[in-house]
Design a protein around this nucleic acid. Structure first.
Lengths: 210, 210
DNA sequence: CCCAAACTTGAACCTTGACTCATGTTTCAG
DNA sequence: CTGAAACATGAGTCAAGGTTCAAGTTTGGG
């Protein structure tokens, strides 16, 4: 897309043509997720990936042109998986505020299960900035649309329509930091507790009411 | 602090004993901020730093033990500068919500002036995680205290006191993402506009009122 | 079966850049 | 003034790890 080559090959390695090839590609990708997640981009070694995958060093280059290319493929992969996971959790929510709550809870639960998520997606900021921006821009776009729709349905407080986007970014930032603090750093509150508090904050607001 | 050595020397290079030394140290630190900010930790080169500073390669090692050490010193430095800048902007605010608004506006303005801030502090997550955590933990602690005090003064909506901390993290995440999007990525809204929208969000909430 | 394409292998190559150190210069306290 | 400590210099050392490649092995369509 934002890629000059644009082909599917460029996005997820070279397409294998045999069953063996497909299986190997999958193993290399999974090994890469482990290696990058554990050691970070720069400390990760191609030999680390191939050893985990149980293949020879050269095999890696049958599927990816470079270290950076696997990393990009991985980020896109996890970005997509995250969006899908949240979308599923939210599906069928009766209204926007309920959707927010379900989405946030699912998100925090998700990062607990896949701690390599942050290590990989956030590091993309410094290794493949275009993919990083694409990730959050995609997220923010969908989010804005949902807020706008809810606002037009009269489900949430009205406001200028130009506020949808900043609101979306604010909510995303909230989720990302809560995910980091309560999903990865320390689990002293459950995803549900965190989601309750955060959603109460943005639903009811801090202003005192009589 | 969290450092085994604990001395001031370990935090900001070796302490120079002459005027010339202090001047050189300052230039090296400034050069390092530029180099790390422009190229990121791993692409930054010590020779890049010393060239910018106009000193020989070896001089660097008169002041810092390693590449990682300057980086840590720099992160602490910028962390402190950020907190100070926000604290000054907030000083004398009549109430918490006003303080929030002023703080956020100041923060976004600050990152616009010093775009290397994100590049450096956020990359610390992958280069010196302890300093990164220290940065946000310090921020969150102060924030929580402020919220708790305001709550006890009856200035903001009441709630369980266990909510202060998650609320603080939510607000920090909001600020960081708004700073990234509207401070660095694109300046399509002014810091004041962004702050207005975001603070309205957490003051009034999204729930519709009759 | 058969063989061309697909895939696998791992030693060797090669760049890069952090860090050392022996030598020289500058500073400043006494 | 002076000499010892502080500071500056930059060529050389060294390890790490990404990438190449030529020689094999396996697969699958015809």
């Amino acid at each position: 897309m934002a890629d000059a080559t644009g082909t599917i090959e460029a996005m997820l390695g070279k397409v294998p043509r045999t069953e063996r090839g497909r299986k190997t590609l999958r193993r290399v990708l999974e090994a890469a997720a482990l290696e990058f997640g554990e050691r970070g981009y720069h400390d990760a070694a191609i030999t680390g990936i191939t050893q985990r995958a149980g293949v020879a060093l050269g095999t890696f280059y049958t599927y990816f042109d470079s270290k950076e290319k696997v990393f990009r493929a991985l980020v896109r992969d996890m970005s997509q998986a995250t969006r899908q996971h949240v979308a599923e959790a939210v599906r069928g929510a009766p209204d926007r505020l309920t959707a927010e709550r379900l989405g946030l809870e699912a998100f925090i639960g998700f990062v607990r299960q896949r701690r390599e998520l942050y290590r990989i997606i956030e590091e993309a900021q410094f290794v493949a900035e275009d993919v990083y921006r694409e990730h959050y821009l995609t997220f923010a776009e969908g989010y804005s649309r949902n807020l706008a729709a809810a606002r037009e349905r009269g489900e949430i407080a009205e406001g200028a329509d130009s506020a949808d986007e900043p609101r979306a970014w604010a909510l995303i930032g909230m989720s990302v930091f809560l995910g980091m603090r309560y999903g990865i750093w320390e689990e002293d509150l459950s995803p549900a507790e965190v989601a309750d508090i955060a959603i109460d904050l943005v639903s009811e607001g801090l202003r005192k009411r009589s």
